[in-house]
């Protein structure tokens, strides 16, 4: 299903900004409102917008099914192994990278890393779910 030229152009313009915004949210999640889940949802929305305007088949060529699956799995493994690695430093999910002055990016330690993992996991999972649901619709 292809929408009109205006919609397609607008979504193409908006999508990169959404990705930027989502990146900001995942990196600065521990300092400002936001965090992993929200960033991930916005990341997924940027792709879902493209799917609604350009159609499933065209988007699937750019963001392949197995790539989405790979990102989802890798971020899941990353999250759990982050917890297991911190066990070497004193406890499950112990914050072993603490550093930097209060309020700076580095003061978060493993929290930004965790947020990035969650964001990629959520974004990939939402996209994946849309792909699977659309595979049954197959309208376009």
């Amino acid at each position: 299903m292809k929408m009109s030229l205006i919609v397609r152009t607008t979504t193409k313009l908006v999508s990169p900004f959404l990705v930027t915004y989502s990146t900001y949210l995942m990196i600065y999640g521990h300092l400002s409102p936001g965090g992993g889940f929200q960033a991930g949802v916005i990341l997924a929305v940027s792709i879902i917008l493209l799917i609604t305007s350009h159609g499933y088949k065209k988007v699937r060529k750019a963001f392949k099914f197995w790539e989405v699956q790979l990102i989802e799995g890798v971020s899941g493994v990353f999250l759990v192994s982050l917890g297991i690695i911190s066990l070497l430093f004193g406890g499950f999910f112990f914050n072993f990278l603490r550093g930097g002055p209060f309020g700076s990016l580095l003061s978060g330690g493993i929290v930004p890393l965790f947020n990035i993992g969650v964001a990629l996991k959520v974004g990939a999972a939402f996209t994946f779910m849309f792909y699977i649901l659309l595979r049954w619709v197959e309208r376009d």
């Binding site: 197995w66 699956q69 790979l70 799995g73 899941g76 493994v77 759990v80 917890g83 297991i84 499950f92």
Partner: peptide
């Protein structure tokens, strides 16, 4: 809890590879 969860995620990764 973490060890079965880790292997669940690795298993979900396998079809992509």
């Amino acid at each position: 809890v973490a060890s079965p969860l880790l292997f669940a995620f690795i298993i979900s990764l396998l079809p992509a590879l």
